[in-house]
């Protein structure tokens, strides 16, 4: 049996595919870009990663058109079969629009969204830390992280604020769907820089096989990306945000 293969989905407008596939490979994953015109090949993959960008120019709403793309048909089927799925930034928005996360409603009937930042609605690029607030084994994707792991990342989005109606928000909070919250470097909780409800940076579905994270761990995942935080000795080695990718790849290998 061959090693499990990870597909990194490329929609028109996706822009973070190269660094995502590069880090997955550095973490030992057999990762491949799958382009929208090759959607027919997607079903054969064992896990899916939806990277950042502006899929279909975020027409109608962030992630809305991509959520109805032919490629996401296979992602939804894969989710039902327990395949592991990771969405980052725009990929996270797509997973919420596709209803896979928090997964409290039917597919493609979203019950929450990552939407316009507040109180300032503009795009924000800022270094952040996020902290794992679920028990690591709650999701296979986070299983290799230590409890309460603090992961560095970059927020780089105009629409990263979790929003839902009060009933769904309660369901998200009570159902343990908030996987990561924004913290400072020491792990102390801070208000989300984008006004996100529950200060949530990432959500997980009930089954734990789908994780949607707004900030980009892959942009603070190599030593050269944080030279002054101990990155000088081996600038090309992985560290920081790579831990989440390594945990994902390990989970795929187990699956």
């Amino acid at each position: 049996m061959s090693a499990p293969r990870i597909a990194v989905l490329v929609f028109p407008g996706t822009n973070s595919e190269d660094e995502t596939v590069r880090l997955l490979r550095a973490c030992g994953g057999d990762a491949h870009l799958v382009h929208w015109s090759r959607a027919d090949t997607l079903a054969a993959y064992d896990a899916y990663v939806l990277p950042g960008g502006f899929a279909y120019e975020d027409r109608i709403r962030a992630g809305a058109i991509a959520a109805h793309d032919r490629m996401v048909d296979d992602v939804i089927t894969g989710c039902e079969r327990g395949k592991l799925i990771l969405g980052i930034c725009n990929g996270a928005q797509v997973l919420l629009e596709a209803g896979l996360v928090p997964g409290t409603g039917p597919a493609r009937r979203p019950t929450a969204a990552f939407t316009h930042n507040a109180p300032q609605a503009h795009y924000l690029c800022a270094h952040v830390y996020v902290k794992l607030v679920i028990e690591p084994h709650r999701s296979p994707i986070t299983a290799e992280l230590p409890p309460g792991a603090v992961v560095p990342a970059y927020a780089a989005h105009g629409e990263g604020r979790l929003a839902a109606d009060p009933a769904h928000l309660r369901e998200i909070a009570d159902g343990g769907h908030v996987a990561f919250v924004y913290v400072d470097a020491d792990g102390t909780p801070v208000r989300a820089p984008n006004g996100s409800a529950l200060d949530a940076a990432a959500l997980v579905n009930r089954e734990g096989n789908v994780l949607a994270i707004m900030p980009h761990p892959e942009r603070d995942a190599w030593n050269y990306q944080h030279l002054d935080r101990g990155g000088r000795t081996d600038p090309l080695a992985c560290s920081g945000g790579a831990a989440l990718f390594a945990s994902f790849v390990a989970a795929v290998a187990r699956s």
């Binding site: 950042g52 690029c125 970059y154 942009r219 990306q225 600038p235």
Partner: peptide
């Protein structure tokens, strides 16, 4: 001003 710009996409940014 520049926090409105994506300065780290592509994952190659050192500074």
């Amino acid at each position: 001003l520049f926090r409105r710009y994506d300065g780290v996409v592509r994952g190659t940014t050192v500074l």
